[in-house]
Design a protein around this nucleic acid. Structure first.
Lengths: 181, 181
DNA sequence: GCAGAAGCGGGGGGCCACCCCACTTATTGT
DNA sequence: ACAATAAGTGGGGTGGCCCCCCGCTTCTGC
């Protein structure tokens, strides 16, 4: 990639970050291009569709969440670590309007994508919890991420607190006496 | 309402139903108006925004789900009845692309809305399950509907089967031994 | 049957995503 | 240093969208 192309790429992502923070994932691509000081054609060449741009925007934040997963790997309680991480993911997704939609929209297994990063990071936490026998082994990390993202998406209007509450609910299960069934 | 206005209203809803079945909730409003044989202004007069139209489109289906809830009220196992109903709701939402988004978008307590109908219908099933002590009393029907709709929204790409599976997962809880925590 | 109001829809404005193509600019081999 | 070249650029065009204005049509109560 040529140096000027790289510079334009970075400027677009930066402008997009600001726009998304203000207007959510439905921000105008044209305005992003205008603020970045590039033509709209340049934006569309670098990012063939809206999701591609959003994916780039959220890449940094996603890395932060993966680092957090690394920290939690050494936590004493594996189950608590997994739940905490998922709750943080939900809270962040609910704040960064559009992240949840992006994660759900793109195929989860596509490498280099935000989703793939979260899968590999989360899988370790899940494995630890399964080994500790606090999580059913037939529940995949994809299941958990989909569930959490779904909740974040639904809670975008109601706020991060509600999102975290629903995550806890789903994790504990809503049944009063699950062992009797 | 004048007779011709009513006729146009019905034709718009019918055209919208077909369009939604084909293209999902993002169907073109202009094309819906065209197919209904009315001007776009008429469509926008009857339905001030997209959600209003979608709400009308899904009204009939929602009534069907409410009837189903009525049937399930006499089922022998209250817990199974609740879970079955929620699973059916999820499966239908995942099929009727956009229903979930509509239910999440409109305020749940607004009377006459699809959401309100589901709340009253589902509340009875939930109460029966609470009385049978198989569901925690602090879980509201709004919690359950939000959770199920969130899952349906997330599973729109993967299909109804996956949606039903995730609902079961959330209801059972993903923990291996919930009673130990 | 008629007056008035309720309803209608063509057309236009503003905005959008996306594409085409003539022009500019960085890179590379000599 | 410099020319050849391939990569990159952005202005403008296209088609579509939502929504609104306003003169015209059609229904309804008397």
């Amino acid at each position: 990639m040529r140096a000027d192309a790289q510079r334009n790429y970075d400027r677009i992502v930066e402008a997009a970050s600001e726009a998304v923070a203000r207007d959510g994932a439905e921000a105008s691509l044209e305005e992003i291009a205008r603020r970045a000081g590039v033509g709209s054609a340049t934006l569309h060449r670098h990012f063939p569709n809206r999701w591609a741009l959003m994916s780039a925007v959220f890449h940094g934040r996603t890395e932060g969440l993966c680092e957090r997963a690394g920290e939690l790997e050494t936590a004493p309680d594996p189950h608590e670590a997994l739940v905490t991480w998922l709750r943080e993911l939900a809270a962040y997704s609910a704040t960064a309007r559009g992240l949840a939609a992006v994660l759900l929209a793109e195929p989860l297994q596509q490498s280099e994508s935000c989703g793939a990063m979260l899968v590999t990071a989360g899988e370790r936490l899940r494995l630890r919890a399964v080994e500790a026998a606090t999580v059913r082994p037939d529940v995949s990390i994809a299941d958990l991420l989909t569930l959490v993202n779904a909740i974040a998406l639904a809670a975008e209007k109601t706020g991060p607190a509600e999102a975290a509450r629903l995550v806890s609910l789903a994790m504990d299960g809503i049944s009063a006496h699950p062992q009797t069934r």
